[in-house]
Amino acid sequence: MNDEPSLSEISHVPLAGVIGMPIAHSRSPRLHGHWLRRYGIEGHYIPMPVMPEHLAEVLRILPRAGFVGLNVTIPHKEAVLALADVVTDRAALIGAANTLIFRPDGKIHADNTDGYGFIANLRQNAPDWDPAAGPAAVIGAGGAARAVVASLLDSGVKELRITNRTRIRSEQIKSEFGARLVVYDWAQAGNMLEGAATVVNATSLGMTGKQPLRVPLDALSPQALVTDLVYTPLMTPLLAQAQERGCKVVDGLGMLLHQAAPGFERWFGQRPEVDDEARRVVLE
């Protein structure tokens, strides 16, 4: 008797993964692998290095190989929008997608869950956070910052201050997101913090191996919530200094975990729980 699974049985095992270049650093396979084991789901999540020139071909082939969807990271988050058949409003607004769903009808559905993950992380780890309590200050104007800006405005922030080393990128975000944004010069970033109720570092500054974030915190209120999208190290210099001033701080790891949950649910049919065990697995 042959115990090997038939081709038809293999084809029903859902496959998902993450594409990018490079991809070896990604923590997503650990997280999704943990959730698959935890919920006893027969499926696989695979990291795949994909060169930009091969992106369109890969997206055509993977659904035929049993893939139900993908996470997308640098450098493909913008390019996949042009290759998708359906783009959510939030992905279009942000100008990037991090989650693809390969639908049974053959269409590619593109979404961006970064903003959702950002807000879910704040609500889980700072349940008293009130987006309407005062201005938000966002440091950075890249793709992650765009997701943060969109989610903060959607959550009810009435004034959003933004600064970036290249001012024109901040101005571009203001032109797209509207009058609630106020642009500050990089040299005036410290002034931006005065009266801010929510402060976000959406740059890679302060990450292990990167340059430090040199924004003076003299004007930072002890009542402010401070969060950093960087999670290596978990307690960045910004968070450590803010905590010393009495601020509530939230690290960036939860955003990574929460942004992954909607895709996992769509691909594998189970809403996963973001808890201490998931954090531990990703940090191992």
Score class of each variant (00 low, 15 high):
Gly206Lys: 05
Asn201Gly: 01
Asn201Gln: 09
Lys210Ile: 00
Arg271Thr: 15
Leu217Glu: 08
Glu176Tyr: 02
Gln223Lys: 12
Ala187Pro: 08
Gln223Ser: 04
Pro222Cys: 04
Asn191Cys: 12
Leu220Ile: 06
Met192Trp: 14
Gln223Ala: 08
Pro222His: 07
Ala224Leu: 03
Cys247Val: 07
Leu234Phe: 05
Val274Gln: 03
Leu220Met: 07
Ala189Trp: 05
Arg271Met: 00
Gln270Tyr: 13
Met192Pro: 08
Thr203Ile: 07
Val230His: 04
Gly269Asp: 01
Phe177Leu: 14
Gly190Phe: 14
Met192Ser: 15
Leu253Gln: 00
Tyr231Glu: 01
Val274Trp: 04
Val183Phe: 14
Gln188Val: 06
Leu220Cys: 06
Val249Met: 06
Val199Glu: 08
Pro262Asn: 13
Val249His: 08
Gln188Gly: 15
Phe264Thr: 10
Leu213Arg: 01
Asn201Met: 03
Glu273Gln: 03
Gly190Cys: 03
Gly246Pro: 11
Ser221Ala: 09
Glu265Leu: 15
Ala240Leu: 10
Pro237Thr: 05
Met192Phe: 02
Leu239Gln: 09
Gln259Lys: 00
Tyr231Asp: 00
Gln259Leu: 00
Leu238Cys: 11
Val274Ala: 01
Val183Cys: 15
Gln259Asn: 00
Gly252Val: 13
Asp185Lys: 15
Glu176His: 15
Phe177Gly: 12
Glu194Phe: 14
Ala224Thr: 07
Ala189His: 07
Ala179Leu: 15
Lys248Glu: 13
Trp267Asp: 02
Ala179Cys: 11
Val274Lys: 05
Arg245Gln: 03
Met255Glu: 10
Ala179Ile: 15
Leu253Glu: 00
Glu273Asn: 07
Val250Arg: 10
Val200Cys: 09
Thr232Met: 08
Ala187Asp: 05
Asn191Trp: 04
Ala196Asn: 14
Val274Ser: 04
Leu205Asn: 06
Pro233Thr: 06
Gly209Ala: 06
Ser221Cys: 04
Thr227Val: 10
Leu205Ala: 13
Gly263His: 06
Thr236Asp: 00
Val200Trp: 06
Lys248Ala: 07
Gly246Thr: 12
Gly252Ala: 13
Gln241His: 11
Ala179Asn: 12
Glu176Phe: 10
Asp185Tyr: 13
Gln270Ser: 11
Leu257Cys: 03
Val215Ile: 12
Ser221His: 11
Ala219Leu: 11
Asp218His: 12
Val250Tyr: 05
Asp228Val: 04
